[in-house]
């Protein structure tokens, strides 16, 4: 099947790009899944057309690396909904969407996957469905649980990075600690009102635990709430940092705290 599939894909490509229709035909003809077809295309130097606008920034080799990567999105609410969307469109090959909750009305102001018709549905399932709608070549694994230090070894098995979509300081400390123990990078962001912060906890670092200290209780979001713009911005920062980590590109946020104030429209950066 391998040689036949590769030949079929090469014959179906137009200008180095492989149309989705050809991917579907290849899947039907060779009894392959969308993921297998995408892997075969990238492996033989063909960019699926869906990534045409990634090509100049990510490149074919980068796209293949993203396809081979697994990212855990911890929490599928305000940050996590956007994270799932961005990582699936980026072409991360496997996304594990972890959240114990179901959508409720107070999520509608900001959570991408919260709609009138999704009220009451589990967030992890909604995330997996969205990933499959965007990109059937991406493995979408929903996990209806609170990610914590006890279940982290199983849920983070094979993960290249964990993206922070959590909504409580205690959860972040716990998951960041688990990531440190397992040697998995933790891409952190948190939001409140007009404000967002982000950093990357590299393996071997305890940056997030040090950032929050032993503090109990919620942050200023309990008074300010969370309008849509801060989680959208913070998730975009996380997606870019995750992409850089997976591809080994650019200057990451490891060792730095980025703080963005959308009310003053200022950003500040401090070493951690």
């Amino acid at each position: 099947m391998g040689a036949g599939l590769a030949e079929f894909l090469a014959a179906s490509a137009r200008g180095g790009l492989l149309p989705w229709q050809a991917e579907q035909e290849a899947a039907a003809r060779y009894g392959a899944g969308a993921r297998e077809v995408e892997a075969a295309a990238l492996g033989s130097g063909l960019m699926p057309s869906r990534y045409a606008r990634n090509a100049g920034t990510i490149g074919l080799a980068g796209q293949a690396r993203l396809h081979a990567a697994t990212v855990v999105v911890a929490g599928c609410g305000g940050l996590g909904g956007y994270l799932v969307e961005l990582l699936a469109r980026l072409g991360v090959g496997a996304i594990v969407a972890v959240d114990p909750d179901s959508f409720e009305e107070s999520n509608l102001n900001r959570q991408l996957l919260a709609t009138v018709s999704s009220l009451g549905l589990p967030k992890a399932e909604a995330a997996a469905r969205r990933i499959r709608e965007i990109n059937p070549a991406v493995i979408a694994r929903p996990v209806r649980a609170i990610l914590d230090s006890r279940n982290a070894p199983a849920i983070l098995e094979g993960a290249d990075a964990v993206a922070d979509g959590l909504d409580r300081i205690e959860s972040r400390r716990d998951v960041a600690s688990a990531c440190a123990a397992l040697g998995v990078p933790f891409v952190h962001a948190a939001v409140a009102g007009w404000y967002a912060q982000a950093t990357v906890q590299a393996p071997g670092s305890r940056a997030v635990e040090e950032l929050y200290g032993p503090r109990e209780g919620a942050g200023v979001e309990s008074d300010l709430g969370n309008p849509a713009f801060a989680p959208a911005l913070a998730a975009a920062i996380e997606a870019a940092e995750t992409c850089k980590l997976l591809l080994g590109l650019g200057r990451g946020l490891a060792g730095r705290l980025l703080s963005v104030d959308l009310l003053a429209m200022e950003s500040a950066e401090f070493p951690l």
Binding site: G75, G78, A190, A196, G219, V220, N226, S259, P271
Partner: peptide, 29 residues
């Protein structure tokens, strides 16, 4: 809290000209 762009604890002594930066806890998502 940072003193002269370095993460610092409350008991840290200050000196003339130090710059202190204070952030609130941000934990939403």
């Amino acid at each position: 809290v940072f003193v002269n762009s370095r993460h610092a604890e409350p008991a840290r002594p200050l000196a003339e000209g130090d710059v202190v930066a204070i952030f609130p806890p941000v934990g939403g998502g």
